[in-house]
């Protein structure tokens, strides 16, 4: 029996030995594609189909056409969520990113010592989990005893409802976002800055350029590819804002800090309104795609107009 078995496997082994070099690469990359098929491709398709259906949980679902999408436009909570998320994204792009560039320029400057120390200490919030960050900011934002209001009270101010005032809650989350992500954005900019040759600056200074001119005519144009990257990352990252509003405000007060991810979670995993949640997810994906494309177009437009 054993002899028969080995006789039967031997040709197979031989065949394998001869062909393994052409077959192996497919086997090597297979785990990714198998996992992607199950946990990526199928969900993308199924979620798209689901977005045209009405129904809860695992129960029967009825075809709803564009109903979910039409309903979205009239859903004030969804409109809130889109507004708040966009507001946060705008804060990331127009405040966080330029601030990170300033910090990167400072850290990159010849006048600064302890560069590694600055890099590391500004970076550690990036590797801290969103749950821990939410806990930290309960202490920072608390209206009575929080760090900020305690500090402000020394100057006679304070009492600000960082998380309870509907007008202030999103700026509070933008501040939290800056604290959280300054380090990684600084690193992106630093990667761009170290790629610029020193000779360019030497040449410019010999020609009598000022520091400001060197920054404006050398640094800024040469940072353009990194700028594109930083902005896209900031936008994509903004749409992931979830754990902090979930734990700090629950999306309140009165939906003033409801984000798209949070609303999607509420609809899909608390109300089990799965068709509607899928529609939310798809509009979000479309947003991200449009923003990314718009960004690329804008940056290309800038370049062609200059040369």
């Amino acid at each position: 029996m054993a002899v028969a078995a080995s006789a039967r496997t031997n040709p197979l082994r031989e065949w394998w030995w001869r062909h393994q070099r052409s077959i192996s690469p497919y086997i090597f990359i297979a785990p990714f594609f198998v996992l992607f098929a199950i946990f990526g491709l199928y969900p993308i398709v199924y979620s798209f189909v689901l977005s045209f259906y009405k129904g809860f949980g695992y129960g029967p679902k009825t075809f709803f056409g564009l109903g979910n999408y039409i309903h979205l436009g009239a859903d004030p909570r969804y409109v809130h969520a889109v507004f708040n998320t966009t507001y946060y994204a705008a804060g990331s792009v127009f405040i966080l990113s330029p601030l990170a560039l300033l910090v990167a320029l400072a850290v990159n400057s010849q006048f600064v010592r302890w560069k590694a120390f600055y890099r590391a200490s500004l970076f550690f919030p990036v590797v801290t989990s969103s749950v821990v960050i939410a806990v930290i900011f309960t202490l920072v934002f608390d209206q009575q005893f929080g760090l900020i209001n305690t500090f402000l009270s020394k100057f006679g101010a304070g009492g600000i409802g960082w998380l309870t005032d509907a007008k202030i809650v999103m700026p509070s989350f933008i501040m939290l976002g800056i604290w959280n992500w300054l380090g990684i954005n600084m690193l992106y900019w630093l990667a761009g800055l170290t790629g610029i040759s020193h000779d360019l600056y030497e040449a410019a200074y010999t020609d009598g350029a000022s520091r400001w001119q060197a920054f404006w005519y050398i640094t800024v144009p040469l940072l353009r590819p990194i700028t594109l990257f930083v902005v896209i990352q900031a936008i994509i990252g903004s749409y992931n804002l979830f754990a902090e509003p979930l734990l700090l405000t629950g999306g309140g007060p009165s939906d003033a800090s409801l984000t798209i991810s949070l609303y999607l979670y509420e609809q899909g995993f608390e109300n089990f309104n799965v068709g509607y949640a899928s529609a939310i997810a798809y509009t979000m994906a479309a947003f991200l795609l449009v923003l990314s494309i718009l960004n690329i177009v804008l940056f290309r437009g800038y370049r062609t107009s200059e040369y």
Binding site: G40, P43, I44, Y58, N240, I260, F269, L288
Partner: peptide, 28 residues
């Protein structure tokens, strides 16, 4: 090879939120 590599990189652009509801049902 190149097609598969490009497809693989393109998957990085998919926001994970799009996948959550069906992934939940797969786990189920």
């Amino acid at each position: 090879r190149n097609v598969l590599f490009t497809i693989m990189l393109a998957t990085l652009l998919i926001p994970f939120q799009v996948l959550l509801v069906p992934q939940f049902q797969i786990i189920k």
